[in-house]
Design a protein around this nucleic acid. Sequence first.
DNA 1: TCGGATGAGCGTGGTGATTG
DNA 2: ACAATCACCACGCTCATCCG
Length: 588
Amino acid sequence: MITVWPVETTNFRAFGWVQDPSNLRSLCNVTAIFDESSPMHQLLVHSIIPELVEKRDGKDELIEVLNKRPLRISYNKLVGTAFKPRSASRCNGIVQATVKGQVRPFIGEWQADNFVRWAYAFHFIRYNYEDDTFEITEEGRELVRARGEDEELTKEETELLTRAALSYPPAVRILRLLADEDAHLTKFELGKQLGFIGEGGFTSLPQSVLLRTLAITKDPSDINKMKADWEGSSDKYARMIAKWLAKLGLVEAVPKTFQVPIQSEVYPVTIGQAYQITAKGYMALNHTNGKSSYKRLSKNVCFEMLATKAGDREYLRTRRAYLLKFISESKQGISVSQLVERLAKCGLSCEEGSIADDIKGLINIGLNITSKNNLYYLEDVLNDFLIPTARLEGKSEVETIKEQMRGELTHLSHEYLGLLDLAYDSKQNRLFELKTMQLLTEECGFEGLHLGGSRKPDGIVYTKDENEQVGKENYGIIIDTKAYSGGYSLPISQADEMERYIGENQTRDIRINPNEWWKNFGDGVTEYYYLFVAGHFKGKYQEQIDRINCNKNIKGAAVSIQQLLRIVNDYKAGKLTHEDMKLKIFHY
DNA sequence: TCGGATGAGCGTGGTGATTG
DNA sequence: ACAATCACCACGCTCATCCG
């Protein structure tokens, strides 16, 4: 039963997705905080907190809440706060004190937040909207009681943790993906199918582009860095969930090697974080699907997991929660148009395309939604959750643009709508580069590469063969992507940089740039262009473009991500050829 | 690599200053 | 004198890579 619940707060937290922790023993310990009879609780009250937390950081208050009955602990007391710089952090939260960190005897506030999320996602603790507190659930008490003498998990703990994992839809999602015949998937392959893909908070690196970048990178330390560091949030969620499942014996980590063809050579590239399901995993999955003689497990969903990042978070969460409510209540199935109608009655107007994408998203978070004759059915049993109704402001500009683009992108996967978020987030410039290159190479028939590294453009693409067949020249484009929050004005320094790349490509002298990035253009390419891609352009960008054109006798353009998406869509729809695109973009 | 660790963007709410 | 508004800033929340 999904209940609509009026609450005072307008400030909702992010629950349901867990980034950092993977130690199951620590999860048990965090749960034990909430059980006054547990050894962990006693230890916290009598030794850990008195020793670890200073008076000025709230030692007495933390002990006081632990001694209160009934035991309900507020988020603040559990998680504490961060210090600046973080290396000077002192312990000021109960969960911080409960887990040992890598460099300190306690963990940071962000890690503490994640442990709380984890315990909540597994339904070992419950959340009270009225006062922002948590308390233990019956499952939580069971888990605490199952504790054995030493650190190792007891059989009973493992069983309870497995049951909890199988009630957590994202974990089921990972298992389902791995349960396909012969599936052997990397964190990227899992990540791009997990959560509300293409939306802020659910980023995934395009593996195909990454593999090619890895293949052409020579320096081993660069390679290690890329392998260890380059991952999006969804990739990381997938990695962590797979890790939990591996520790529970449902999944096994097996590195996966790809043969990556570039021009005429093939390079082997291995991704270490890849997974396969085990026999035990298959059995567990049947358990959740209700196929076996076991009773089917019901799923824990919460309002907060339906969108995580700022922006239209509350709007999206509310829309998706209602969708889930309506589908779950329609045993005989419900159509998209009926859903639109029912949402409208709740004051949530939106297009049918958004509903279809939301349903895909709900499937991607691990819910078993099926469709037959254009009617949707929920095959899962959901545990109760609340839809807190507070402010219901309208959609923001970006969401409105996305909605409009959904209608326009008839031939292109809507996962690329995520580029609209990325284009305005400077923190994610690398993902914006990779994703843009993926758009051009995988969706738009160009050959090409993301280059990356210093003294190279962000990427290059070029045409091959196709143009020869119709008697046209092959052409190449030097690409520079710019993610800026308020639009991009193309400052002189950046224009100069592009001019330098154009010059390097014209002279092609190893003495001028020893990395010879231009070699990545194919052999038959005879004319060159350059392109800036950003969310949108502002200021005197056109003057800079004209200046480069004039200085280097070459044509270039600045194209917004919206325009680019439309162009790629038209290409896929067969309305534009590469030759048409060239004329449209560069000859205006 | 693993299992956190870190700096940062963004929003919010408090504070004192400024305005009507 | 006084309430309303504003500019500023510290702080909390939440990433998205980073890293010992």
